[in-house]
Every structure is written in C-alpha cells, then in structure tokens.
Amino acid sequence: MTDDRIARVLLKQEIEEFLYREADLLDERRYDEWLALLAEDARYWMPMRRNVKVDDREREFTREGRDISWFDEGKETLTRRVRQIQTGIHWAEEPVSRISHLLSNIQLLEVNPSPAEPAEVSVRCRFLVYRNRVETETDFLVGKREDLLRRIDGHWRIARRKILLDQNVLLSKNLTFFF
C-alpha cells in the first residue's frame, strides 16, 4: 500500500476508537469528560423530519438556524443539560436511565488537509441509542450521524454533530440523553 492509503487506514481506526471512547463516556455517565471532548464552538443539531414526496427532499428536514428542530444548540446549552442531570432532581433522568450507544457503518467522508496530517475529519455513521428506564420503559432510536472532528492541541474534538433520527412523530416521551 502507498503511504497515503496506510495513513488513511490508520486514521480511520483512530477516529473509530475516538467515537467508541466517546460513546463509553456517555454510557458510563462520565458527562464532564464527555463535555471536554466538545470544541468550544461546537454545534449540535437534530432536525425534525417530515413526510414529503420523493422529489421534495429539501423539505424533509427542518433547517438548522432557521426552523424548530429537536436540538439546535452549542456547548453552553449542552453543559447546562449535563448540570441538570447532575442536580439529582431532574426527574426525567432520576432514577438514571440505562443507555447504550451502538455505532456502525463508520465512514470517513472528508479529511483535511491530508490523512497523514489530518486537522479536520468529517465522519458519518449509523447509531442505535437504546434507553431503558425505571422498570420496562424502553426506547430504540436509530438514525444517521455526521460529525466534524477537529484536531486541537493534539486531541480530537467534536466541532459539529448532525443527528438524523429516523422518526417523524417522536416515539420517545423526552430526549434527556445525548446522541
């Protein structure tokens, strides 16, 4: 293999490991460590999805920064969400839920400037977020995610997360967890 292809394989493995570690932090409720993985200017966006005609894809998703979405926010609000869980009286997450993030179909979409010296990587995956809480309450949330990861001081940081949930009417009563 050429050096460039080897660099790409190694990079893909590095990114996958980063995403799996991140999922572990969420599933183990190590939220402060998770917040530290977010770039200061991180954007976290989860549009709502509408039933549209096959040729009307533009209207399928609510628009970032213009329409109402499930989430459309930055690190400050995400931090407040974490603090809310940590109060111990956020009843929607108290007692705490059991959550597992399963990631698959991980693909590097774009690497800048090069796989050998990557500064920004855009990566797509599928997610299955499983939540079980109290006794029998269970949610399966499946969809696609697109992340923009940025290398800051030698560490990968999440600069942007786009979450496309495959649901129209949200089948969960709330979204008290992170994708």
Binding site: D67, I68, S172
Partner: peptide, 10 residues
C-alpha cells in the same frame, strides 16, 4: 416558526 414538534407521551 416552521417545524411542529410532535411526540408521544404515555
């Protein structure tokens, strides 16, 4: 605003 939130609560 464009976008109606719809969700189920038991």
């Amino acid at each position: 605003l464009c976008g109606i939130q719809k969700w189920r609560v038991p």
